[in-house]
Design a protein around this nucleic acid. Structure first.
Lengths: 113, 113
DNA sequence: CATCCATAGGTAGACAGACTAGATAAGTAG
DNA sequence: CTACTTATCTAGTCTGTCTACCTATGGATG
């Protein structure tokens, strides 16, 4: 079902929050939709197991980075739509900066600079 | 003491093994030296707490990706020098490929592709 | 109508990896 | 002698992800 070959982890640990916030920054969405969006946008490389997704969404809510409301009108089914908060946007920016700092440093190391 | 500002994690989780194997690929070295090398080569961005370093080194040994020998002649102090094995080199390659696949996918997502 | 599939949300428990905060020891500089 | 740097290591904790489940409903197929 998943597009990955089945070997290795589905995600780089520590990046899921950032990825979710990024998707929500483009517009409110429900959990299942977020996971699909990440798989699509990554060309099928990134898969988000439900057991990682929903705990992460709870985390973001608890930190005040998102708000949630139940909405049935969009999908026909009950679905919980998440919206990023201003605090969440700031968090996204700082997470992204950290991520780029880290991956930049790793790239420097791995290229033997 | 550390060159990082002090905020955020010291490492991207899941990358430490790869970074250590990369350093050892350039030549045998002891734990303390590996940590210094990573800090230097990353321009001070990457810091490796001892409580992360030594468990990681044990992990690599147990998996057969490195071998270790005690050596006092180089540093004057007792130091444990680690050497990468052929199995470790293969692991390094596959870890690096995974890492690039993941970061590439994340970059695609974050750039809105 | 019954059955199956995709959608949709969720939890429990295990596990990996990194972190804090210490202990220990030896060489070097003042 | 004292302090600093080098050097290794462990215990306990915490965060985050993963596997493997459970529940429910709308739409399509038989």
């Amino acid at each position: 079902m998943s597009a990955t070959g089945g070997s290795g982890p589905d995600l780089l640990p520590g990046t899921l929050d950032m990825l979710i916030l990024h998707v929500l920054h483009e517009g409110s969405l429900h959990g299942y939709g977020i996971a699909q969006r990440l798989e699509d946008a990554s060309g099928g490389v990134l898969t988000v197991p439900r057991g990682s997704l929903y705990p992460a969404l709870e985390r973001l809510l608890k930190k005040g980075w998102t708000t949630a409301r139940w909405d049935t009108s969009h999908t026909g089914r009950r679905a919980r739509f998440y919206t990023i908060t201003p605090s969440g946007s700031r968090r996204l920016e700082s997470k992204q900066a950290d991520y780029e700092r880290m991956t930049g440093a790793i790239a420097r190391v791995m290229s033997g600079a």
